[in-house]
Every structure is written in structure tokens, then in C-alpha cells.
């Protein structure tokens, strides 16, 4: 394609959309976060750091998010890795694509309905009733941190499997053969060849899941029963119930900031760990 004025024209609609619906709103959030709350809610222009200094009032939400998001990411990783390994290296070749699609499909269906399924399963008439019928007691499952964790793993597992699968699938199998020829037992080949070479996929998966978990609202709202709440739940409360926009804007800005800092640190760490490899890509 020739580069000319026409190329610029083609960019105008997308550019205007990104500017009007992404850049400007995000700037508004930053501006509002330094403002003051009006008498009836909303925003009064001002320049104050009071909202940021008040962030401690929502410390519990940040603490829950920063505990359960890494924990949920770890749980996803532990469950996803063996599956990705199976799909990439052990599954019969002609089933591989179908099996992979079956993992990814749930991610593209409604997270609301999938989380609702767990309300149904963990609720009083679901698994607890089943356990009781088996004489194992009736533990309370819904509205606990455990329920939130199950919801997280259920919701985000596909996102973890896919990048790990991709990095394992690209792995040069001759390295494994060489390792076996040189007399390494399989577990050593795994630790010294397979695992290090799959780390970029692990890093990508962890980051994707972690980023999405930081902004999670639905899973804690539906499975945590108001006891386990994330920053997302605090945001919904601040914007839709108490209508404290400037403070809400500060919480949102802080959330994005924490996210950016964690992700940057994590990327640095992974880069160093992977010995300067640069293929820790996101897509």
C-alpha cells in the first residue's frame, strides 16, 4: 500500500474514537481525583490531595485485591500448567486443536452466567446439600474467600492455559531428545529444559490473569457476598451508591497505578530471570 494522505484519513475515525472515549475519559478521572465532592455528590473543581490521602479508608479493598489476585493467579497457574503441558506435548495431534478450543471457548462466553453457575453449585442446595446427603456435614461454601477463589480459577483458567501452551508447543523437541540421549532422567529434562523454556508463556499468562483480577468486580460481588470485596466493589459503591466521584476517581487512579507498577516490576523481574530474553510478549 502506498503511504499518502489517504492513509491518514483512514486513521481519523479510529483516532477520534480512541481520543474521545479513552484518552479524554481517563484524563477526566485524573482531574476529578484532585477535586472535591459536591453537596449532592458529583464533582466540584479544586486541587487537593485529600482524596489520595484518604485512600486508607479503602485499605481493606486494596488488601483483599492484593492478596486474592496473586493467590488466584497462582492457583490458575498450578492448575493450568499440567493441562497446557498435556495439550502441547502429550495429547494426540489430531485432537489437539479441538481440545485447545474447548479450553478457550468458556473465556469468550458470559463471565456473569459462568459465575452464576457457581452460586447455584456452592449455594445451600448445591454441593453442601450433596455432601450432607453423603453424611459429610454441610459446610458453608458460598460467600467465603474459598468461593471467590473457585470463581477466579473457573473464570480465568483459559487465559492461563493458552500462553503456556503456545510456549510449550514452540519448544524444540530435539532438546528433550538430546537431554534423554545424554542420560538425563525425564524429571531433570523437565526442570532443566522444558520448564525454563516455558517461562515466557508462564509470565504472559500470570500477567494477563493478574491484570484482569485487579479490576475484578463480578466474582467477589456474586460469590463473596459482601464479605470478600475487591477494589472493583469499592468503586461500584463509590460511584453508584455514595456518589463520591472525586474519591472514587482517586481509587480508580490508584488501582491503575498499582497495576502499572506491579506489571512493570514483574516484567523486569521476568526479563532478568529469563536471561534477557525479549519474547515475553502479550499476544
Amino acid at each position: 500500500m502506498r503511504q499518502g494522505p489517504s492513509a491518514w484519513l483512514l486513521l481519523v475515525p479510529a483516532g477520534a474514537w480512541l481520543l474521545g472515549m479513552l484518552v479524554l475519559p481517563l484524563v477526566v478521572v485524573v482531574v476529578f481525583s484532585f477535586g472535591e465532592r459536591g453537596a449532592a455528590g458529583g464533582y466540584v473543581p479544586a486541587f487537593t490531595f485529600a482524596n489520595y490521602l484518604n485512600l486508607g479508608a479503602r485499605w481493606a479493598a486494596f488488601r483483599n485485591t492484593l492478596t486474592l489476585a496473586p493467590l488466584g493467579t497462582l492457583a490458575c497457574l498450578i492448575i493450568a500448567y499440567p493441562l497446557a503441558y498435556f495439550l502441547a506435548l502429550r495429547a494426540p495431534a489430531r485432537w489437539r486443536t479441538l481440545l485447545l478450543i474447548l479450553v478457550i471457548v468458556p473465556f469468550w462466553t458470559s463471565i456473569l452466567i459462568r459465575t452464576y453457575a457457581w452460586i447455584f453449585l456452592l449455594g445451600g442446595q448445591g454441593i453442601p446439600a450433596l455432601l450432607e446427603a453423603l453424611g459429610l456435614g454441610a459446610p458453608r461454601l458460598i460467600n467465603t474467600p474459598f468461593a471467590v477463589l473457585v470463581g477466579i480459577v473457573y473464570g480465568y483458567l483459559p487465559l492461563m492455559v493458552f500462553p503456556i501452551y503456545v510456549s510449550l508447543e514452540r519448544l524444540d523437541r530435539r532438546l528433550l531428545e538430546a537431554s534423554a540421549d545424554l542420560g538425563s532422567p525425564p524429571w531433570r529434562a523437565f526442570l532443566q529444559v522444558t520448564l525454563p523454556l516455558s517461562l515466557p508463556g508462564v509470565a504472559t499468562g500470570c500477567m494477563l490473569v493478574f491484570i484482569l483480577l485487579m479490576g475484578e468486580f463480578l466474582i467477589p460481588a456474586m460469590l463473596g457476598g459482601g464479605k470478600v470485596f475487591f477494589v472493583g466493589n469499592a468503586l461500584v459503591d463509590l460511584f453508584l451508591q455514595s456518589r463520591n466521584w472525586p474519591f472514587g476517581a482517586a481509587v480508580a487512579a490508584a488501582l491503575v497505578l498499582v497495576m502499572l507498577v506491579t506489571v512493570t516490576l514483574y516484567m523486569r523481574l521476568v526479563r532478568r530471570w529469563a536471561g534477557g530474553r525479549d519474547d515475553v510478549s502479550l499476544m
Partner: peptide
Amino acid sequence: IPGIVIGIATLI
């Protein structure tokens, strides 16, 4: 950017 932040930013 999390959907929730996009939602809030667009709203205000």
C-alpha cells in the same frame, strides 16, 4: 485497562 475503570471514566 480494566473494564470497570473504562466504565467509570466514561460515566463521569
